[in-house]
Computed example of a mutant assay.
Amino acid sequence: MADLIFYTNPMSRGRIVRWMLEELGQPYETRVLNYGPEMKAADYRALNPMGKVPTVVHGEAVVTECAAICIYLAEAFPQAGLSPAPSTPARAAFLRWMFFAAGPVETAVVNKSFGFALPDDPQAHTRAGWGSFDDVCDALEAMLSDGRDYVTGEAFSAADVYVGAQIGWGLQFGTLPERPGFRRYAEALATRPAAIRAREMDDALMNDGGQ
Rank of each mutant, 00 (worst) to 15 (best):
K112G: 04
D120N: 09
W130K: 05
A142D: 15
S145E: 13
P119Y: 11
P119D: 11
R183W: 09
G174P: 00
Q123C: 03
T126W: 12
P122S: 12
R148A: 11
D138N: 14
V136C: 03
M143E: 15
Y162G: 01
A124H: 09
Q166C: 12
G181P: 02
P180H: 06
R148Y: 09
V151Q: 04
F116V: 15
F133Y: 15
G131K: 04
T152P: 01
A139K: 10
L171K: 02
G170C: 03
Y150K: 00
L140G: 06
A139D: 06
Y185A: 09
C137T: 09
K112I: 01
D146M: 10
L176D: 04
C137R: 02
A158D: 02
D160T: 15
G153A: 11
L171G: 06
Y185R: 01
P177W: 06
E154N: 13
P177T: 13
W130C: 05
L144F: 09
A117F: 11
W169V: 05
G147L: 08
F114P: 07
G168I: 02
A117Y: 12
F156H: 14
H125I: 01
P177L: 07
G170L: 05
G129L: 06
A124E: 12
E178A: 12
E154Y: 04
F182K: 00
I167C: 04
T152A: 05
G147H: 09
G147R: 03
G131C: 05
A117Q: 14
D121V: 03
R179Y: 13
D146V: 07
W169Y: 13
V161Y: 03
D135R: 08
Y150R: 01
P180L: 10
E178Q: 11
M143Y: 13
V136R: 01
G147I: 15
T152G: 02
C137Q: 05
R127L: 03
S145H: 11
F116H: 14
E141G: 10
L171R: 03
G131W: 03
P177V: 10
Y185M: 05
